[in-house]
Design a protein around this nucleic acid. Structure first.
Length: 597
RNA sequence: GGGCCCGUAGCUCAGAGGAUAGAGCAACUGCCUUCUAAGCAGUUGGUCGCAGGUUCGAUUCCUGCCGGGCUCGCCA
């Protein structure tokens, strides 16, 4: 079924042709929603057409309005206010549209796999730090974008990259060796990622103490940091790791294993997953080989000290190191290797999307240019999906100052609030304790996900612990509540034997029904826009608008109690389709709906 | 200093060339013996950072300032 906008667009072209003998460019035709203080559904802005028409805005609007109402059966009337032509769409059109939505499947989603494969990377954790609030924004964003791309017809590969090698990992290992007394997550009763993270912090404390002592002996800060015995030991451990020293390597595997168990538990509670996990320990050598190949071909150059560089000054960037003077790999080296490994693993990938914070924008500019210099045609189909930081009322999160908001703690807190609110209301008594817990978890997660996804990704955002766990107003639970209402009504309708037949398209409807149907009508274009702009906040805000329109309708229009069978039938259809769209919109945000709350 | 991004109501955020700039929170009013009140209806609250420019029309585009963030490490 054609959308009303498509129908109008076409008709306005014809109108201009017949009335003014003018051919319109798409930019001439501006159709927007009618503001609620005027009568109408859609409004044509006539100013761009005034010159072509050679008439005043009012006369132009009048002429086009008469033409449209005469020629377009979907329109019933029009009015012109200043340069705005307000058009009233026939209720029958909205009802035909409503009945055209299939009860099965996903309205507004494209055929799966009808578009090329896209790889989406999100969650690039280090194994020495537990996941925190910043990771939550990253992961929810990437996961939602992956679902949006699927809904828009793409095949999607979800990947995670784990930074499991480097000096920082050695620090945790070293601290554990020195004071861990063979402690394990089991013996300590602690999640593995938390345990390893604790030793990382411990190293940092001991290291700072050493630095302070050395400085007290008169050394400069820089000297103290490079000469501190703990640092030298950590560096030695990294060298032994690279040489595959069995003792070091085994400990590394063991401790990383603990971390992965911890991460996986967090991912499970977040309701996210991955198709493939990449480890930097498996890609840094490939990256190093690739840099050496570039050196041989003269793409890169070597400085006197032995380090290898790329000169990007011609592209407005700087000279960048790609390999240290001692030949070891750095961050960008392993990123080069990871990218190439992915090109090889998934040769059918059209686009590769890196979900990484905006503090790494420069890094990715460099990375993509280096890949291009190396001759990889996929380089210009790599995209850095950059997002802003999550700030706290006190400012930036700083692990050293203990202001990091831990992901597990936050999730637990959101679920607790959900439990408290629900128990206070006592609406879930018919459910078993297990079912109730599942509802609390889904509601708590919906609050958290919605909070982080409703903001435009490019913007920094504020996380205020007090206000952010509100479950009223513009929140995930509000939208869940709208969905739950649709489910409750449909359950009761079924119990009462009121099976909805297709709506009678001649049934008169009020503004309450009309605004909900109009909103549903917008859903496909919202999905497409959100997918092409990699922006879940568009869907998040849409879902809120739909839930709000539905609540207003719900409050003002009886459904099961409506005695007119035809109207009740229309309303039941409307309830069912609203529920479907709310469910699908939340799905695109990675949010699971609940049936009761 | 160079580069990128952000400045909209007391707070958190929508709006991306069009009409009198919108929500939520906070504050204040009403509405549950009636399909779930995590809701609905309403009141209060704005120099869209500042100054120019383009345009019939600018919060939206351009330029310059001001304020904030990030970045320009042989850290990751």
């Amino acid at each position: 079924m054609k959308t009303i906008r498509e129908i109008l667009h076409e008709a306005v072209m014809r109108a201009a042709n017949e009335l003014f003998q003018a051919a319109l460019a798409p930019a001439h035709i501006q159709i927007q929603e009618t503001r609620k203080e005027f009568e109408g559904d859609l409004t044509l802005v006539v100013f761009p057409l005034v010159k072509l028409a050679g008439k005043s805005p009012e006369a132009t609007g009048q002429a086009i309005g008469e033409f449209l109402v005469r020629e377009v059966p979907e329109l019933v009337s029009f009015n012109v206010v200043k340069g705005f032509l307000n058009l009233v769409v026939a209720p029958g059109y909205w009802l035909r549209f409503l009945s055209s939505i299939p009860a099965q499947g996903h309205f507004g989603f494209r055929e799966p796999g009808s578009r090329p494969r896209v790889m989406v990377e999100y969650a690039s954790p280090n194994t020495n730090k537990p996941l925190h609030l910043g990771h939550l924004r990253n992961i929810f964003l990437g996961y939602s974008v992956a679902r949006l791309l699927e809904a828009n017809g793409h095949a999607v590969t979800r990947v995670q990259i784990i930074n499991d090698r480097g000096i920082h990992i050695c620090k945790s290992m070293l601290a554990w060796q020195r004071s861990g007394k063979n402690e394990t997550p089991q013996s300590a009763g602690e999640k593995g990622d938390k345990l390893v993270g604790r030793y990382y912090v411990e190293f940092d404390k001991a290291f700072k103490k050493e630095v302070a002592e050395l400085m007290a002996e008169g050394k400069s800060e820089d000297d103290a940091k490079t000469q501190a015995p703990l640092m030298l030991e950590a560096q030695d451990m990294l060298r032994r790791w690279e040489a595959r020293d069995p003792e070091v390597y085994e400990l590394w595997q063991r401790m990383n294993g603990w971390v992965y168990e911890g991460f996986n538990a967090t991912y499970a509670s977040m309701g996210v997953d991955f198709d493939k996990v990449y480890y930097e320990s498996e890609t840094y050598l490939l990256g190093r080989d690739e840099v050496m190949r570039g050196l041989e071909r003269g793409t890169f150059f070597r400085k006197e000290d032995g380090s290898i560089w790329v000169d990007l000054t011609a592209e407005g960037l700087d000279q960048k190191v790609l390999l240290r003077r001692d030949g070891t790999a750095m961050y960008i080296t392993q990123d080069i290797g990871t990218a190439i490994l992915r090109f090889r693993d998934f040769p059918d990938t059209d686009y590769q999307i890196y979900t990484v914070g905006n503090e790494q924008e420069y890094h990715f500019k460099v990375l993509f240019k280096v890949l291009a210099r190396l001759g990889w045609p996929q380089a210009d189909r790599c995209y850095h999906l950059s997002y802003g930081m999550v700030e706290l009322p006190e400012g930036k999160m700083k692990s050293r100052e203990g202001t990091v908001v831990d992901a597990d703690d936050l999730i637990a807190e959101m679920v607790n609030v959900a439990r408290e609110v629900a128990e206070e209301q006592g609406k879930l008594e018919t459910l078993s304790p297990q079912e109730r817990e599942a509802v609390y978890a889904d509601i708590g997660m919906s609050a958290l996900k919605y909070f982080l996804l409703r903001v435009d990704p490019v913007k920094n955002m504020l996380f205020n612990p007090r206000e952010s766990i509100d479950f009223n107003g513009h929140t995930g639970p509000f939208i869940q509540y709208g969905y739950v209402r649709t489910r409750a009504i449909l359950r009761k309708a079924e119990d009462a034997g009121l099976i909805a037949a297709p709506p009678d398209t001649s049934c008169p409807i009020s503004d309450w029904e009309r605004s909900v149907i109009r909103r549903i009508h917008d859903f496909p274009s919202v999905v497409e826009e959100a997918a092409t702009r990699y922006n879940p906040s568009i869907v998040a805000n849409y879902a809120y608008d739909l839930a709000r329109d539905f609540n207003a309708f719900y409050q003002h229009c009886p459904i099961l109690r409506e005695e007119d069978t035809g109207l009740r039938n229309v309303r039941l259809n409307l309830v069912a389709r609203t529920g479907d769209v709310l469910r699908d919109a939340l799905y695109l945000l990675g949010i699971r709906v609940v049936e009761r709350m």
